[in-house]
Design a protein around this nucleic acid. Sequence first.
DNA 1: CTGAAAGCGCTAACAA
DNA 2: TTGTTAGCGCTTTCAG
Lengths: 353, 353
Amino acid sequence: MNPPPSRPPGKTGAFGSGAPTIHDVAKAAGVSIGTVSKALNDQGRLREETRVLVRETAARLGFRPNDLAQALHRGKSLTVGMISSDSFGRFTMPIMEGLEGYLAGEGISVFMCNATDDPERERLHIEQLLGKRVDGLVFTSRRADRRPTADMTHLGVPTLFVYAQSHDPMAACLLPDDQQGARDGVLHLARLGRKRIAHVTGPDRFEAVVLRQTGYLQALQQSGIDNYHMLLNGPWLETWGHDAVAQLFDHGGERPDAVFCGNDQIARGVIDALRERRIAVPGDVAVVGFDNWDVMTMATRPALTSVDMNLRGMGKEAGVRLMAMIRGETFTGITRLPCSLAVRQSCGATSAT
Amino acid sequence: MNPPPSRPPGKTGAFGSGAPTIHDVAKAAGVSIGTVSKALNDQGRLREETRVLVRETAARLGFRPNDLAQALHRGKSLTVGMISSDSFGRFTMPIMEGLEGYLAGEGISVFMCNATDDPERERLHIEQLLGKRVDGLVFTSRRADRRPTADMTHLGVPTLFVYAQSHDPMAACLLPDDQQGARDGVLHLARLGRKRIAHVTGPDRFEAVVLRQTGYLQALQQSGIDNYHMLLNGPWLETWGHDAVAQLFDHGGERPDAVFCGNDQIARGVIDALRERRIAVPGDVAVVGFDNWDVMTMATRPALTSVDMNLRGMGKEAGVRLMAMIRGETFTGITRLPCSLAVRQSCGATSAT
DNA sequence: CTGAAAGCGCTAACAA
DNA sequence: TTGTTAGCGCTTTCAG
């Protein structure tokens, strides 16, 4: 349609391909650059005629305003940076998706950087991003635990930690409400009539693990279950699910009728191990996971009920807040966003209670 | 260390936080801005004394050159865009990691955009990125199949398709060598003495599936196996692995002694189904997967041997080529990068043949 | 060896 | 209603 925007003969434009500038449009339309600017940005009073003429000319030349120049002038780059302290993991992704999706709608682009737990790389990235005059900065890590990195809260740009924490207690921080998520998962089991609910989870040096344990205990109490509780900590692995089942079911004693798991991988191990023992899920034992990771929840038989941290929503919320911060509002401290429960067959009640 | 770079009293700087400009440095050091520029960029002849003075002053003020201004001047933004036509999936991630990691070393930042199979969103993203004057563009999709989107090869900036294809046969394109990968996987099985190797894979509307099938057949031929071949197509799911095993093992007839799978999820289903039938892996049947996805390969028992597409390496190679293209070199057509084989227990030979 | 000034592309305030 | 111009922060000649 448009002819390849080849530069009008004369001086070679700065940018490689020679994109037409506002100057070119002005010349082609036979008006001044001020007029072009007004016509294109719907400002000032202009004869409709001129406005149309300019618009058409601009379209014909394939003119696209140079955001760099605009940014330089306005002092806003319409750009933010996101730095993942860990590789782009399974948790970072949906956050990124939510963030980017929201910001794209606001005309903001996102620089994505990966620091892989290397403070030096991280420093470099920050340096680069500040050089590019990003309007805001988002830090993410794999697990929602304290970041090892030194303080970076006074970078001069609005900064937000998402699924990550800062050393600075005043830093704005978005986290899932692990405690509430766990509580809801366990309450669901209790409401279905389960009386002996075990909790098989990760290492308790993770804050998330501690919070989920607290939620688990709260739910038991809240449900009037005071004669049974069982907490097992181990690695975040399927094999740990297997081992935990061995501990729970192979040694006589009172067996649980439900297992609430710290993540979906453990839950998968638990379900597989139960099947090997011909213990019916959810008939004999109900299972609930955490993360709602489709790869796992769809693969277990039966499909896995799981707590969802709504990471995409968290990413979007991060975008909303970052924009607010850029506009001058100020956020501080930790905000926890609610988890929800994705109910499937493994807990014995697909449709409500 | 550095005092928060508060603007020297006087006019308020453009960018929110009021980062010091080269002007501020010049004033503070009592020299001209030309001198500052030279001192900071090691250009022209300058008295060592002045150079040091300027440097110190700049450091003291926390001066960081404004890349936007620099970009405007040089006509290079030191920025590239990456657009994923699908959500940020498991395949996009390592590519992104490789690309970003390499480009960060070159001082280039990467805009990450997600178009989620929505052509309109994609158009918007391209528009935005071109407005930001990215020096290059990378397109990615989830599966290495033809993109539905209309031609976008004449955008005026170097464009590269990675793990994705363009309609334009001249477009530069980086893909894994599916055929070679499959061939190597099957050859490995043959070398271990397997004679009846089945291939359980995805739907054959995927080009990758067809290529892998071709590689499979090549390997059989190359190994002198001409009395057995078995091709099964189904969805990319674990459950399909289960079903395929039922087809292969529950109906009498000649049973395979190895299964080469189209991806790791299918492989996992196969291994689980075999175990349920008390068929030993790798004793009775060897299994090889495709993707080398750690979540799967580490979770199967025994651990899964799998073909690795080296996506991170592909991302890095994309970076290398994009840089070359930006410098004026030109690439066209499809380049296929070799796959490797990650050998584990499921094929019966961990340490070499 | 250092300073002054033009210009990258755009916007906004001011003139005409 | 339209044109002119002064910057935004930086690099790069060209004078001094």
